[in-house]
Structures are given as structure tokens and as C-alpha cells.
Amino acid sequence: MPVTPSIERLTSLLRLVPDLLQEIAEEELTAKPAFNKWSKKEILGHLIDSATNNHQRFIRIQSENEPVIFYDQDQWNSLTGYNDLETKDLINFWKAYNLHIISIIKRVPPENFGRAGIGRDGQKHTLKWYFDDYVDHMEYHLRQIIAY
């Protein structure tokens, strides 16, 4: 499978990260470094929004001809109100959604990894590229929340 390294990285994160997130005090999770910056809890929420949109991307790239998929991440975060949600529920949902993403990716026929979708920048990228980028993006943001 062409994305095995990314599946392995994501699987490792799902084993490691939830316990580390649970150790962070609620005050630290909800503190905003600036008015227009996300709290750690909102960053985790952003990763859930990313999972939601990439879930759609991973399916639609296989079933449509070069779908255009993007979203306004600040609006999604603001309208969801992640800082007000229960931390444990947020962590569990993030983990469960990503386990679901892994199951989807494992079912992708190898020839479909070369199919393309179009993002906000108007550029075509393959399903493989989107999945690898999804895991890279996740790690970038997780490092804003915890050290691992």
C-alpha cells in the first residue's frame, strides 16, 4: 500500500497522544494566546474539522472527477465552540474519527491513490498526497499542543 508509512504514523499518534492530552490542565487547554489565536483545545477541534473535511475528500476523490473541497477553518472552529466542549469527549472523538479515517484509507484500491482532487489553492493533488499531507498537518498542530 503506497501510504503505509502515513498509516503507521497516524496509528502511533492515536496510541500516544490521547493520554498526553488528558494530562494537560483544563486552564492550559482553553487559554487563548491572543484574541485571534486558537487555544490548544481549539487546535484539537481544528484537527477534528480537518478529519471531517478529509474524510469527505478521501471518499469523493474516489467517486467523483477531481472534486473541489475546502472549508473556512476559522468559521468552522468558531461556530463549533470547541473551548466549551468536554475535553474527554473531544479527545475521544478525535481518536475515534481518526481510527475511522485509517479504516477508510486501508480500503482504498491502490489505483485510486493516483486520483486527484482540488483544494483551496486550485491545485490538483492526488489522494495519496492528501492523505500524507493530512498526517503531516496533524503532527504540525499536535506539536503546538504537546511534546511527544
Rank of each mutant, 00 (worst) to 15 (best):
F58W: 08
H100F: 14
Q22H: 13
E64R: 08
H125D: 07
A25N: 12
Y82G: 02
L85H: 08
Q75F: 01
D89G: 06
D72A: 10
S78P: 00
N53Y: 12
I61G: 05
I102P: 05
W94V: 09
D132H: 05
S50I: 09
H141C: 06
A25Y: 00
Q123L: 14
P5R: 11
N98C: 09
G114K: 15
Q144P: 00
D136R: 14
I102A: 10
P110T: 13
Q22K: 14
L29W: 04
R120P: 02
S39H: 08
H46E: 08
D74P: 01
E139Y: 01
R115L: 15
I101W: 07
K32E: 01
L21M: 12
G122K: 11
F131W: 11
K37H: 09
N65M: 09
T52A: 10
G119R: 13
F93P: 00
E8Q: 15
T87A: 12
R143P: 01
I101Q: 05
L29G: 00
H46T: 06
S6V: 11
T126N: 06
S63F: 02
R115E: 12
G81P: 04
A147S: 06
W76M: 09
F35T: 06
G119H: 12
P5L: 12
F131R: 04
L44T: 01
L13V: 03
V17G: 10
P109N: 13
Y130P: 00
I48C: 04
F70V: 04
T126G: 02
A34L: 03
S12M: 03
D136V: 07
P110K: 15
W38G: 01
G117F: 08
D132T: 03
I7Q: 07
I24V: 12
P5T: 12
A34D: 05
V135C: 11
N54S: 12
E23R: 14
L85F: 06
E42K: 07
G81W: 11
S39A: 04
F58C: 06
M138H: 11
L44G: 00
G45I: 07
L142H: 00
N65W: 02
R115N: 14
Y71F: 15
W76N: 04
I69P: 04
Y148P: 06
F131D: 02
G45T: 05
L13S: 10
T80H: 13
I145N: 00
T11D: 15
T80S: 07
Q73D: 14
M138T: 13
I102D: 09
T4R: 15
V135S: 02
D89Q: 15
S78R: 14
Q56C: 02
R9T: 09
D121W: 06
H55F: 13
L85E: 04
Q144L: 09
F113K: 14
T87G: 03
F131I: 05
N77P: 02
S63M: 10
D19M: 06
